[in-house]
Amino acid sequence: MDKYQINHLRELEAESIYVIREVAAQFERPVMLFSGGKDSIVMFHLARKAFWPAKVPFPLMHIDTGHNFPETLEYRDQLMEKTGSKCIVRLVQQSIDEGRVVEEKGVNASRNKLQTTTLLDALEELKFDAAMGGGRRDEEKARAKERFFSHRDEFGQWDPKNQRPELWNLFNGKKNMGEHFRVFPISNWTEMDVWQYIYMENIEIPSLYFTHKREVFNRDGAWLAKAPFMQLKEQEKLQELDVRCRTIGDITCTGLTLSTANSIEDIIHEVASTRVTERGGRADDKRSESAMEDRKKEGYF
């Protein structure tokens, strides 16, 4: 590469930093959603780069379903302490206790969908006007249509058929009172880009992404982790296997990958040779063909 060339990761980084700064400049009360997964970790890293040596000029927020892997929460708290950042936590359990949502029943019950209400309530309560998320267009077909700056009406809904055109790098964050924006700074990153960037920048990630022994059971072809709130069906048996997370979501719907990948390099190799998408193990997307689109319209991340 010549003197005036940057590689694809540096170009994506420059684009994402630009988007994050634009959010800080155009909105009064932005917030960055943080789940403890690799995408939000990378997004937060980019935010720190965007404002260094100043602190990130907006808080983080975690919508906690109460069904997290304990390692995720541990990682989150350590990261906040290390970087001197603030993370607001809102609990889905509280939305349940207050009767705002009703817990799903049955063996496949998940709090994934319930998060939307907790999120929208939190945005309204804390008067956030822009919420940045780590969604990527390559993750899912409805997300492939998403803008960087995605307008939400006063009900937090997305209207995919009537999105604002987005040209060059001119982002239009204008809105009426009560409306807000979702912003996706790493829209153009693929799963591989995220891993290569973590490698290049030497970013620390939760231990869940590396191989470890865990008690798991198989449901509909996906390996799920044993947890106190997971009910097993009759024929499902626990086994201890070498697994790792390819994505981190709720324990209830995050499929684990059988893997012995022990380093970021191993993971990059594994991602390069895999033939299944990363959300292929996510039960929440398999509910129907437009599961993601339907959830997004209601205000999901």
């Binding site: 267009r137 390559d138 077909k141 409805a142 997300r143 492939a144 249509k145 995919p160 058929k161 999105q163 829209s187 153009n188 693929t190 591989m192 063909e289 437009s290 689109e293 339907d294």
Partner: peptide
């Protein structure tokens, strides 16, 4: 069908909006 991501697009067999695709 790979590029038509929205329900309305699949039902009507048309593409409504710009879709972004990635490969390397």
């Amino acid at each position: 069908l790979l590029t038509d991501g929205l329900r309305a697009e699949r039902e009507q067999g048309i593409t409504i909006d710009v879709a972004y695709r990635y490969f390397a």
